[in-house]
């Protein structure tokens, strides 16, 4: 049986290896839109979003899920910034600003609901 510490270390090395592969692996030409640095950065953010979604699925209590949703909302602003760089369309960053404010209001409403208060306080 492998001790816990060694297992964590193996997991750490494996996750970093996956990230290095995502950033630096040469891709076949059919996936050409992902070959630049910004496309790879987009894939990296996708890995982070999948980790957040894992917490949403697994979270034992409701506040856990709310925290994960809050973090997902902030990550999506990052998505918008990367998208506006890689496609060259400036209006993606407008979506980012609107998304930041909207997710803030949504999380505040969730927090009030969890606390058991009315919304009109």
């Amino acid at each position: 049986m492998i001790p816990g510490r060694v297992r964590w270390f193996i997991g750490l090395v494996a996750s970093f290896a996956v990230l290095a592969l995502i950033l630096f692996l040469p891709l076949p030409s059919m996936l050409k839109w992902q070959s630049g640095f910004l496309g790879r950065a987009f894939l990296w953010l996708l890995v982070c979003a999948i980790l957040c979604l894992a917490r949403v699925v697994r979270g034992p209590t409701a506040p856990d899920r709310s925290v994960a949703i809050d973090m997902l909302g902030i990550l999506i602003v990052g998505f918008c910034a990367i998208l506006s760089l890689s496609t060259g369309r400036d209006w993606y960053i407008d979506i980012g600003i609107a998304w930041a404010l909207q997710s803030f209001i949504g999380v505040m409403a969730l927090a009030k609901y969890l606390e058991g208060r009315d919304f009109d306080e």
Binding site: T61, S66, F104, V107, M108, L110, A111, K112, L114, E115
Partner: peptide
């Protein structure tokens, strides 16, 4: 602010 509200709500 939202982190603070979530901690309190939890």
């Amino acid at each position: 602010v939202s982190a603070h509200a979530l901690a309190r709500a939890a």
